[in-house]
């Protein structure tokens, strides 16, 4: 039995026999078959082999197979977005704690040093307290010893309290009390020598 020398076309014959080729490939094989007796003979043999091998194959009971299948496993539920903040990395909490500690240390240092910023803060608070005292003459005695939070706040109105809080906010916005830069300024002449 002779064989077709066109291996590519011969390789397509099983799919052609099963009608599994696309339209274009199928038309190409059909055109080749019209001219090639060897491929026609091989196609006939493929049909015989297919008929023989598939003969006597029992019909599978699809319903019985499906009944024996496992149930699908539920997929893990995604964590709601609202709760994701709990899962932040530890370093973020550590950084936040460090920031708070640094801020607290700064305030403590200001108060302990009694420097310019602290004095400015005190004067601001005194001014604020003075305004409150102007509104409430009954607080005049307390003005002599500076501001006092002990017991006097309950006597203030809402507006007065808000005014006081506003003054405290300006206190937080004061310039940094860090020491000035110590970088020396070196003056140089035109020749590049230090003066």
């Amino acid at each position: 039995m002779t064989e077709c020398p066109d291996d590519v076309l011969r390789d397509l014959l099983p799919e052609y026999a099963l009608e599994a080729l696309g339209t274009a490939a199928s038309a190409r094989v059909a055109a080749h078959l019209a001219e090639c007796a060897a491929c026609r003979a091989e196609l006939a043999l493929l049909g015989q082999v297919h008929g023989t091998l598939t003969r006597g194959v029992p019909r599978v009971d699809v319903a019985a197979v499906v009944a024996a299948l496992p149930r699908p496993m539920p997929r893990p539920v995604a964590i709601p977005a609202a709760r994701r903040w709990v899962m932040r990395p530890v370093w973020q909490y550590a950084a936040a704690a460090g920031l708070l500690l640094a801020a607290g240390s700064g305030v403590a240092w200001q108060r302990a040093a009694g420097g310019h910023a602290a004095r400015l803060a005190d004067s601001t608070l005194v001014q604020s307290a003075g305004r409150v005292q102007a509104v409430q003459a009954t607080q005049a005695a307390r003005a002599e010893s500076g501001i006092s939070f002990g017991g006097g706040l309950s006597d203030l109105s809402v507006d007065e309290l808000q005014s006081l809080l506003g003054q405290m906010d300006t206190l937080r916005a004061l310039p940094s009390s860090d020491p000035a830069s110590m970088t020396p300024v070196i003056a140089m002449n035109e020749g590049g020598k230090t003066l």
Partner: peptide, 10 residues
């Protein structure tokens, strides 16, 4: 199952 069972049986 219906798509592949018979091919597997063959």
């Amino acid at each position: 199952v219906g798509r592949h069972a018979q091919a597997l049986a063959r």
